[in-house]
Design a protein around this nucleic acid. Structure first.
Lengths: 149, 149
DNA sequence: CTCAACTTAGTTGTGCACAACTAAGTTGAC
DNA sequence: GTCAACTTAGTTGTGCACAACTAAGTTGAG
């Protein structure tokens, strides 16, 4: 029987680490006028432009309740544009504006800053990332078994 | 130079894992009518009752902007009571009600469910927790150096 | 062809997180 | 003893997350 003590629990470690990292991003992203979730959307678009809202949601595991207002703010900031698809009027395609594309240059140095802050070498990052992915997979599978979508 | 690709970044793995775990807690805690942050506060109080808001904030790394409304909701739910300290009227002591103490029984099984969902043995949990704590420590130190409190 | 089932994005409401601020109480240098 | 600096909670405003819902468009079984 596992204990109910806060300090024993992995979940709290995860929660604390996630907030610590987000809080570092807040400092680093201040210069780009982006929040951390907005930065994740920009990363996805810099990697592959012209995405449907649905595709962004699948990559980031976020639903339209989170993405719609976030994308609206990115559009207001002039970083992306949104267009209804002609061939399927339900879908909305999100594309980078020139400003949005240009912002990539300012972001180039960020991963190295974050890497330095974590004091992990490339192998350490890869190993931990793999463990976290396995954890996420396992937890999501368990949750879906408990409470089917 | 680290890449700007989403899939390479540890931070995204952390963010995804943290949300996956919270989402499992949402299912598990539904029965107790608690959110995950509320559960963390209850854990802290079950471990040691009669805490100042300040002490809870230090343990959970949360400020009064988060805790004050959360504690108000726990009080409305009848799980805790809050009292201004007589010897220092600035401080508020948070104590479990009988209902709040009793709720501990219903929570007994939760850590094992979460443990099972993570498919990690006790050693794996301890190791990962240690790595996450080191990461949090390192990232927080870096952030404070960048942007002093 | 029709329309019920489905898909996609968006809206609404709740509850964190957190920055910035306020209000009230305490303390210590002088 | 006084008051400026500090401490402690609480408030306000913004932006996620997410459940539940709506609106509009698409599709396919019949």
């Amino acid at each position: 029987m596992a204990s109910l003590r806060l300090e024993d629990q992995l979940c709290f470690g995860l929660y604390a680490a996630s907030r610590a990292v987000t809080s570092l991003y807040r400092v680093v992203l201040d210069d780009l006028d982006l929040t951390y979730p907005q930065y994740l959307v920009m990363l996805a678009l810099w990697d592959k432009d012209h995405r449907l809202v649905k595709e962004l949601g699948a990559e980031l595991n976020l639903d339209s309740g989170t993405l719609s207002p976030l994308l609206k703010r990115l559009q207001t900031a002039g970083l992306v544009v949104r267009n209804r698809q002609a061939d399927d009027e339900r879908s909305v395609r999100v594309s980078l504006s020139e400003t949005g594309k240009a912002l990539r240059e300012k972001a180039q140095g960020i991963p190295d800053v974050i890497g330095a802050a974590m004091s992990l070498d490339e192998a350490g990052v890869a190993r931990m990332r793999a463990e976290l992915d396995r954890l996420t997979e396992s937890v999501n599978a368990y949750r879906e078994a408990l409470s089917p979508a």
